[in-house]
């Protein structure tokens, strides 16, 4: 079983709360602004991510989701 982690970069407001709760320091604010004017967060170190979901729980904009995918292909990040 593998998981697909995705951050909706247009929904993220770069508040940074998820950064503070990620136990593996996977997340980082990007330096390219989204269409609304925020710097969305992205997984700088996806390999360290253990899909604990704390970032999803903390996100005030429900911008992060984790879904199960059947394929054995390595999950890629959908930004």
């Amino acid at each position: 079983m593998s998981y697909q982690f995705s951050i909706d970069a247009e929904r993220c407001k770069g508040c940074g709360l998820c950064l503070t709760v990620c136990p593996k320091k996977v997340l980082q604010l990007s330096d390219t602004v989204n269409s609304v004017g925020y710097y969305p967060v992205y997984r700088a170190r996806p390999e360290d991510c253990n899909y604990c979901g704390l970032c999803c729980i903390m996100c005030p904009d429900v911008a992060i989701s984790i879904t199960e995918i059947q394929s054995t292909k390595d999950q890629t990040e959908v930004s």
Partner: peptide, 24 residues
């Protein structure tokens, strides 16, 4: 392990300020 937006939450972009916990 999985986390999805609840069905009762719409897809509308929330107008709240960044980090405002209304969204949570």
């Amino acid at each position: 392990k999985t986390f999805q937006k609840p069905e009762s939450l719409t897809d509308r972009y929330m107008h709240y300020c960044p980090g405002c916990t209304h969204g949570v």
